[in-house]
Design a protein around this nucleic acid. Sequence first.
DNA 1: CGGTAATATATCGTGCGCGATATAAGTAAC
DNA 2: GTTACTTATATCGCGCACGATATATTACCG
Lengths: 159, 159
Amino acid sequence: MCNYIVDMSDDPASSSPSPFDAMLCFDVYAANLAFGRVYKPLLDPLGLTYPQFLVMLSLWMADGQSVGRIGETLGLDSSTLTPLIKRLEGASLVTRLRDTRDERRVLVSLTPQGAALKSEADRVLTCVTRNTGLESETARQLREQLRQLRRALQQPLKG
Amino acid sequence: MCNYIVDMSDDPASSSPSPFDAMLCFDVYAANLAFGRVYKPLLDPLGLTYPQFLVMLSLWMADGQSVGRIGETLGLDSSTLTPLIKRLEGASLVTRLRDTRDERRVLVSLTPQGAALKSEADRVLTCVTRNTGLESETARQLREQLRQLRRALQQPLKG
DNA sequence: CGGTAATATATCGTGCGCGATATAAGTAAC
DNA sequence: GTTACTTATATCGCGCACGATATATTACCG
């Protein structure tokens, strides 16, 4: 498990402001892929992909959200969500209904089957949490740093 | 910018070991997408996608790596890398040559044009680094935590 | 040496993620 | 109310990410 990019950061020559600090992007990228690989075998039995799982999580927390609202939460737009949610609808996990108060919107709601999947999903979350090897407090701090990073990156580019 | 999932972590009910601690996966996911969006407009002029950029970074650090070696570094396999590298070859940024000492391997090497792109890429890295809003030391610590997380996730599942 | 297992890369199908574009519904100005 | 503008969702094409599979080369073992 030798890794050029990773090892580079331990190179004394790259300490203090250097281009290699920007390789944070790579570690985020690799960590995200690693999560996906852990989730896949756990989510397969539920018939969910990882992004579908995130949409379901959003709905388990607040049912009946519009497509745009879900997209705001997850940072995705309709070109990604529409087909994804249609697949969830095809699996009878959600319904898609036009908002009668604003016909532009589509409200996504859990079916009984979709709602029932929550308990199994909670078990998946617990399993993954164990396998991060992080203390609850450490994970909380890491999440806070990542949210801050995301916020900074969403600002218009400076320079 | 109200976010159900994010806000959930501040709910007192979810402190200490709870399923929501596992939402770390979501913050990693969202941070990765945010990086991709920052990089896109900067990489478009170079004719590179973000994953292609990561492959080039790997080659700028160590030229002439095999496909598998690059995959080890980035956490990708040949089904992703082969077509990606062929596109880099099509753009005349790399060459692909069978290793004469082990004909199973394909060695990927920078062309002069590919090597020349490094200086522009360094500028992109510097620009993104500025926009993470993180001190060099903070970024270093965050990277270390993410690498540790990745390592933990790559272990066989426990439980 | 021959046969089998392991390794390295390539191919294919599916589902994201996103820019560009289209369409329809709501909003504002006059 | 008609025109112009904005908003919400949908469609399309491209490039990744990955499981499953194929093929070729090397390594191992009798």
